[in-house]
Design a binder for these strands. Structure first.
Lengths: 334, 334
DNA sequence: CTGAAAGCGCTTACAG
DNA sequence: CTGAAAGCGCTTACAG
């Protein structure tokens, strides 16, 4: 039952404890010099009266709203979502609300208006969440007097702070995992040759192989991020008889497509060919105990958390922060 | 460049316009009786000085924080995510921030503390986001003096407001789509018999068939929400030669499993057997122009939006609100 | 129609 | 160590 008891204010606490408002405030906030006895008396009184400071009054007095703005191009997109959720979860744990402005980054006018609205709200920080590394986001850092952090995108201003996936580490991780399993003839099927994420993953994979004195079993198969391309590529691998003992898919869709075709052709997975994907979309979809594909989780949720943590952390460390990926072993590398 | 110009206050506007603070306030908020001339002069002045009211001061004076609390069990779970994002997007469009309290619903103590914290912040409303219909959420409505809405879960208090998927409509939609394509021998593969969502989808499917004077081609195959179960079920359909011309999968995973086995056995999809799933996880994963599986989108994002809209709407309509699903036609019913 | 005043509850120099 | 006062900027009865 919602007992409609009158809100207890700091003045009430002060009156009951027999001190002034300012003394009560100091006692509860730990500022200034106060005798131990007085402090304890006030604290006990506050506790007894079930006092909670009015957050809005504190906000006004301190000029901090305990709200962070999250600016996105398209909040509903698959890859932004975990980033936003990660950030919002972390912020909520720290009593910070999120004001989500979606799709206002695009039009200049909307953005100018948004900036004014956010400043009027006295937001404590700004998190710009992008959708990958295809293009740089125009920096809005200078428009705010509070810290601005970029997640899952890079701004066009080098001194800005951004958090992005570590695509090189992803490629390296896939390679090292397969090498550790004894695989030596590794193929790679991935997206367009001009896709930056794809390029960096290729680079990481090559590094891992090079460290073992190896190279890829064949030149990289560039196509698109789709399952259909995975199937097409697998047909070519079979037709040209590359004799591979492992395939790294640039993402899970590709890996799935590769698997379907190989399996249909009688190739045993993982005995004959081991398979690794990227994205952890099985985990993205549903938390199955049944895990099939070995994959590498890019760490989008963790990236959102890290960006939020940095934003709240105070001192801004300029530059790019790379999110460490996680290997998730499934049946396809057994 | 962040021009550090002094913030313009309402007092400044009043002074420049040559009126009192209260008159200026009334003019800009449209309250009370004011001469047209005065109002226009004040509005012009506000515009000229680029005045924006301090949101925190407004909040304190009005007792509204423009913040909604979102309470979840596990914000990072696949199905809560779109609901939360939908809600946050809608709320952001209406200048409402979201304070996400994750996983505090479970322990009584945490919850009590959270309620006190939220009341102290003078939140404007509460959105409880669940993870489906397996179990009812303990009602927290009475703990707050602001409106409380439940999304993707039902509370244990009948007069509460909740928004849930329309599983019956989902089943019906699948059936009607297949009937419209001329299919007559339809099988259904779904999760455990005691799964509520599965039951309701079965019911809807049966209703659609009954309306056409038909019944299912075979008793429902109950198993689990997994691809593996879809494969197993499909093997049985083949082994027992059910002669179906369509299969409805309880979700997309099941449908995929069914498809793999049927296709491997030489069944042409959709010519021989049409296939429908539920969840739209291809869309969930990545926005492919390439769409393969025909599926039914449960509408989680829309449900989050609707719940948020209702929460802001003022008058609360008690009871259960059902979210309409959307049919997304792909190649498997091509 | 307009304005002086109180109120929303806190925090924080500044005196004492 | 403690308190009176100003300040954070608004809104809103209430007089005039």
């Amino acid at each position: 039952m919602a007992v409609p008891k009158k809100k207890v204010t700091l003045s009430d606490v002060a009156a009951v404890a027999g001190v002034s408002l300012s003394t009560a405030s100091k006692a509860l906030n730990g500022g200034g010099r106060i005798s131990v006895a007085t402090r304890q008396r006030i604290e006990a009184t506050a506790l007894r009266l079930d006092f909670r400071p009015n957050g809005l009054a504190q906000s006004l007095a301190l000029g901090r709203s305990r709200t962070v703005a999250v600016l996105t191009d398209r909040a509903e997109s698959t890859f932004s979502r975990p980033v936003i959720i990660g950030a919002a979860t972390y912020l909520g744990q720290h009593e910070q609300a999120v004001l989500l402005y979606d799709a206002r980054l695009r039009r200049r006018d909307d953005m100018a208006e948004s900036i004014r609205a956010l400043n009027a709200r006295r937001i404590d920080g700004v998190l710009v969440v992008g959708e990958g590394l295809h293009h740089r986001t125009r920096s809005v850092t200078a428009e705010f007097s509070v810290p601005v952090t970029y997640a899952f995108t890079l701004s066009d201003e080098p001194d800005d702070v951004s958090f992005v996936p570590d695509n090189v580490a992803i490629g390296r991780m896939a390679g090292e995992h397969l090498l550790a399993l004894g695989r030596r003839r590794i193929a790679h099927v991935t997206a367009e040759a001009d896709d930056l994420a794809a390029q960096l993953r290729v680079q990481g994979l090559r590094e891992a192989l090079a460290a073992a004195g190896l190279t890829l079993a064949h030149e990289v198969l560039h196509g698109s991020w789709t399952e259909a391309w995975g199937r097409t590529a697998a047909q070519r691998i079979l037709a040209e008889d590359w004799q591979v003992d492992a395939v790294v898919g640039g993402n899970d869709h590709i890996a799935r497509g590769v698997e379907n075709v190989l399996a249909a052709a009688g190739v045993r997975i993982p005995q004959d060919v081991a398979l690794v994907g990227v994205d952890n979309w099985e985990g993205l979809i549903i938390n199955q105990t049944e895990r099939h594909l070995t994959t590498i989780d890019v760490g989008l949720i963790g990236m959102g958390e890290a960006a939020a943590a940095h934003l709240l952390g105070g001192e801004q460390t300029p530059g790019v922060h790379y999110q460490a990926p996680t290997l998730i072993v499934g049946e396809t590398t057994g």
